[in-house]
């Protein structure tokens, strides 16, 4: 059995205890809702995109430490990035979570920084969905924002 310390790294617990960018954004910011039917968790991502750049991002909802901290770290990372950079960033993250197809190109030069702490989640396959919930919801919000 993999050690629990691989999952609950200090940076993850820190973002869980003190989530960054929690809250909502008023329109014209868009939002998207995601949920994990397995556990009933739900998450909302609010996204303010202007001139092809993520100006602001916030999240609300309920979830476990992994989904909450992963989303919190994600919001910190994507703020200020261009839409194309965010897309590449999400691909890189999903690649780390072993969720990309071989046909998808992943830019290995994209640095995940703190988010690499979530790599340990891969050893607990059931929790991969928790870690990616916020990210998939972000992608949906992004699609909505650039429509």
């Amino acid at each position: 059995m993999p050690g629990i310390e691989d999952l609950y790294r200090e940076i993850i617990l820190d973002h869980y205890r003190t989530p960054r960018n929690r809250g909502e954004l008023p329109p014209p910011a868009v939002y998207s809702e995601g949920n994990n039917p397995l556990c009933g968790d739900d998450i909302r991502i609010y996204l303010d995109v202007a001139d092809g750049v993520v100006r602001d991002v916030k999240f609300s909802g309920q979830g476990c430490s992994i989904s909450q901290s992963s989303t919190s770290m994600m919001t910190v990372a994507v703020k200020g990035k261009t839409v194309a950079e965010v897309q590449a960033f999400v691909r890189r993250f999903k690649h780390m979570m072993t969720l990309t197809n071989e046909s998808e190109t992943v830019d290995e030069s994209v640095k995940l920084g703190d988010i690499e702490a979530l790599q340990g989640v891969v050893k607990f396959p059931v929790r991969i969905k928790c870690a990616t919930l916020g990210w998939n919801t972000l992608l949906e919000a992004l699609t909505e924002a650039i429509k």
Partner: peptide, 9 residues
């Protein structure tokens, strides 16, 4: 503590 985390521990 979230139930998912409890069950993991």
């Amino acid at each position: 503590i979230h139930p998912h985390d409890i069950s993991q521990i």
